[in-house]
Design a protein around this nucleic acid. Sequence first.
DNA 1: TATATATTTTAGGCAAACCTAAAAACAATA
DNA 2: TATTGTTTTTAGGTTTGCCTAAAATATATA
Lengths: 222, 222
Amino acid sequence: MSNIKLSKSEENYLKSIFNLSEFGNKQVSTNSISKILNIEPASVTDMIKKLSKKNLIYHEKYKGSTISKSGIKIALQIIRRHRLWEVFLHDKLKFNWDEIHEIAEELEHVSSEMLIDNLDKFLKYPKIDPHGDPIPNKLGEIDFVDKISISDLKINEKGIVSRIINEDEEFFNLLKKLKIEIGSEITLIDKIDYDNSVEILIDKKSVIISKDISNNIKITKI
Amino acid sequence: MSNIKLSKSEENYLKSIFNLSEFGNKQVSTNSISKILNIEPASVTDMIKKLSKKNLIYHEKYKGSTISKSGIKIALQIIRRHRLWEVFLHDKLKFNWDEIHEIAEELEHVSSEMLIDNLDKFLKYPKIDPHGDPIPNKLGEIDFVDKISISDLKINEKGIVSRIINEDEEFFNLLKKLKIEIGSEITLIDKIDYDNSVEILIDKKSVIISKDISNNIKITKI
DNA sequence: TATATATTTTAGGCAAACCTAAAAACAATA
DNA sequence: TATTGTTTTTAGGTTTGCCTAAAATATATA
């Protein structure tokens, strides 16, 4: 198949198109790619032609682009590389959450399959990255898990924090204070009807968090 | 100073020029750079002009290039990155010795000072890479240690294996069999005058190795 | 539906990093 | 020293990935 090595640029376009396409289901406009990559629409058109010729996307003039099956496959591999590096940077090199994306953006283009496989093994085959996003496996398969809100739990049910919506500095600091991070176990103790805040058990302590805070934390039931 | 980000190409040229210059002491010919990088001499001349304009090297037309002080500084940082990644690939990702160079060649161009500092810390500030080459510290300083031959030891003196000269597959396999690797402790038991082979204690066993073999192993006295 | 506005494409250019072919400078040696 | 051979540079070309300006198409609105 298309086992041809892609350039860094091509990889970035493909990843962006995949992300905009909602898993390959939506047509993507030239303008939206332009905005995401900060590249002029005319240049995007150039690259669209190039990727089309390689059958990684299909393009209808003036209408938009759709990512192909082989395009999706490659995009998932790039995402896999990105997220594995993020786990490494966060868990091993002790980078903060908000510092890892940019570096992973560079590391993801180092193309050695063996490198990624060995890294995956070294990290013990993580399923999610530090942002809570799922990591595709070698075959590009993703473990879809239901992400729910804390308030969807019943009293005494437990969940694992799997996604933080709000990425602001202050929110990040709050979570740090509450010892809440991706992977933390949370038990619902009580729901307070008055203002929809919830009482939870986290890090062996019970705290009450507002509706707004709990809405910004997604969990998976266990 | 010249805190301008260099391209991957510029970094590769600078590293090669540094390596050819024997620590900045020798003038480097255009042809030698061409051969090492597998790039035509005409292209090398182009890049030499570019690096000269940035004061990373000095160039005398038709004579050769000398690396500047700031050029050396940058080259040492690239070498530092390369060797730290090699330690990571070998020690953590369990790559073989002979597989790491190519991948490190790519990783070395990911430019984040914090990344390298955190990696250095994670690896516990290693002094040598898996080939036995010294790793410059953050300031570009290198721990120079006398590398001697096993036969330079006196009877019962000990040394640490610090460099393997021959990089052939077969030699590598032989070392594996003898349990000799970078960092191994070797004690000289006897020198055999007849053919200059030596009897050594390695991995708690005594073996006799030929002059040829011992000449391909450099050690540092302890 | 006609017109204004927004989106996308085409056309032509530019810088980086390579190339080949030919000219210039240097080195070696008859 | 004149000639031959090697090394280096110059000159001009290519590809990649970007750009701006203008033309073509699609969409929105009066």
